[in-house]
Design a protein around this nucleic acid. Structure first.
Lengths: 121, 121
DNA sequence: TTGATAGTTAAGCATGAACTTTAGTGCCCT
DNA sequence: AGGGCACTAAAGTTCATGCTTAACTATCAA
């Protein structure tokens, strides 16, 4: 399994609407800190803190140019969360396939209660 | 854009390691509340609360059978987050493509500083 | 140099969320 | 019936974190 810490930090970062909004804005193109802050009803300092969170977990990269900082998305930053979600989805799919196979095998019982799987009660 | 509330609830739910662990366990197959609680160093009540969060945002479904509750993943539950992540990734890709095209067009300037894009400073 | 711009950092507050404890409810088994 | 099991609900506690204010640094422009 991939670095647990990284997954945790990414999901934590994405839990905040403001940080997702920043990421949405940045996925349209690079922007300075104050440009990113503009649409928000919060202090510049608060936005800076959000950016720092995004940067610490690798979702965003930035470089200081003159007195302004240009932020951009890290193109591979979302990979961890994408991988996690993808793995879950494929496992669930496999689960449903197994269930379907079992139902096709023995179409005897009540079809509305697919309790053919072990449930460890 | 898809329901903003749903996206928010899903990402919030996934921010908690315990809830991700529950989802991981459930993507292997259905399980009862106490089965889900077993590996955790926390009260059954706490786990119940986590399950309620997961259920409220549509990541998990459950049904009461006798005195136990059987939980299973909602196969389409992760779609919202998957879609959000996918959209970001495709936008970033498009962004990189545009940048590449611009660089190919005018290979004049310093190649290490791809500031050909507008940055609204 | 002076002033304004752009961001950074630290400290403190205040809300929310995770967890516990406690006290139930309903179901199953003997 | 009655004891125990599986869960639920409510209330309280504690701790994290998102936000603010305030003070500070570095850069640009006149």
């Amino acid at each position: 399994m991939l670095n647990y810490q990284a997954i945790d930090e990414c999901f934590r970062a994405l839990a905040e609407p403001a940080r997702r909004a920043i990421l949405e804005r940045l996925s349209e193109g690079p922007a300075s800190v104050s440009t990113l802050a503009a649409p928000f009803d919060m202090t510049l300092a608060a936005v800076v803190q959000h950016i720092q969170v995004l940067e610490k977990c690798g979702l965003v990269r930035s470089e200081k140019i003159g007195r302004s900082r240009v932020c951009r998305v890290n193109p591979t930053g979302l990979d961890v969360v994408s991988d996690w979600v993808g793995l879950r989805r494929s496992m669930v799919e496999r689960q449903l396939d197994r269930l379907g196979a079992l139902l096709a095998e023995q179409p005897a019982d009540d079809a509305d209660q697919p309790n053919t799987e072990r449930t460890d009660p």
